[in-house]
């Protein structure tokens, strides 16, 4: 666990602009993988779907189901691309770190982009900001403000705190799950490769934990997406 991150500080001489190059690389890699898979899946679209198109349509229907669970489809279809991208990006990001972790020198280069609190919080903040934006856009500023005083006026401070806590829990839940998975995997790798006895002791838990991490990766992507939709629906639907 004594890996460091390849951090570049004060880019362009701006004091607050720091980059963790590992994150930057993994963001690009994950985005590229998602993009390539989606585009490959959307090739040769036909009226009678075959192969990859079936998978794409099944996935689309799955996300549609998530959105339908949280809001009516009339407003929900606006967020379909967002939910699709969120789910696929987080899923791919989670799985990348489970399959391999790459270390060059002492720097941890190849990992899940979602195992970084900054990145998950960025996604969470984006979702919350979008929820506010669409809340105002779809229901009007007056209704949006009034919503803070519902059901009773003295809940206003709690409602305001809730917005921040939502952001934090949404981002940190994902980060914690994926990061813990990676830490434990790294520990097991150290144990397995450390000694002869350690190999027998660590190999089976390693396999089990890797399988479990894949499961966690899927579950967390699902949870992130459905919670995003729930938060958005709180803002855009009148009946909440």
């Amino acid at each position: 666990m004594d890996h460091t991150a390849p951090i570049v500080e004060d880019v362009f001489g701006i004091s607050w602009l720091d980059f963790n190059m590992a994150n930057v690389m993994m963001i690009i890699v994950t985005s590229a993988i998602v993009f390539v898979i989606c585009v490959l899946g959307a090739r040769k679209l036909q009226m009678k779907p075959t192969g990859a198109q079936n998978v794409m349509e099944w996935f689309l229907d799955f996300i549609k189901g998530i959105i339908n669970d949280t809001m009516d489809w009339k407003t929900g279809k606006l967020f379909l691309p967002l939910a699709l991208t969120l789910f696929s990006y987080i899923l791919v990001g989670n799985l990348l770190g489970v399959i391999t972790n790459g270390v060059i020198g002492h720097d941890l280069w190849w990992k899940s982009p979602t195992a970084d609190a900054g990145i998950t919080l960025t996604l969470a903040t984006m979702v919350i900001v979008l929820s506010h934006y669409y809340g105002i856009k779809l229901r009007g500023g007056k209704e949006y403000i009034k919503d803070y005083a519902r059901p009773v006026w003295f809940l206003v401070p709690i409602k305001i705190v809730e917005e921040f806590s939502n952001t934090l829990t949404l981002g940190l839940r994902l980060f914690g799950n994926i990061y813990a998975g990676e830490v434990l995997l790294a520990l097991l790798v150290t144990l397995t490769t450390g000694s002869f006895l350690g190999f027998f002791g660590g190999a089976i838990p390693f396999l089990a934990w890797q399988g479990f991490s894949v499961f966690i990766g899927g579950i967390q992507a699902f949870i992130f997406t459905i919670l995003s939709m729930v938060y958005i629906s709180h803002k855009v639907s009148a009946d909440h």
């Binding site: 460091t4 607050w16 720091d18 998602v34 982009p113 609190a117 990145i119 996604l123």
Partner: peptide, 25 residues
């Protein structure tokens, strides 16, 4: 250190790439 703290650069990159990815897909 592994967490890398909260680097603003990462966040901007993440936001930018996510939005680009969203538009592209």
């Amino acid at each position: 250190a592994v967490l890398g703290g909260l680097h603003l650069g990462d966040m901007l990159v993440q936001l930018f790439f996510f939005l680009v990815l969203l538009l592209l897909v």
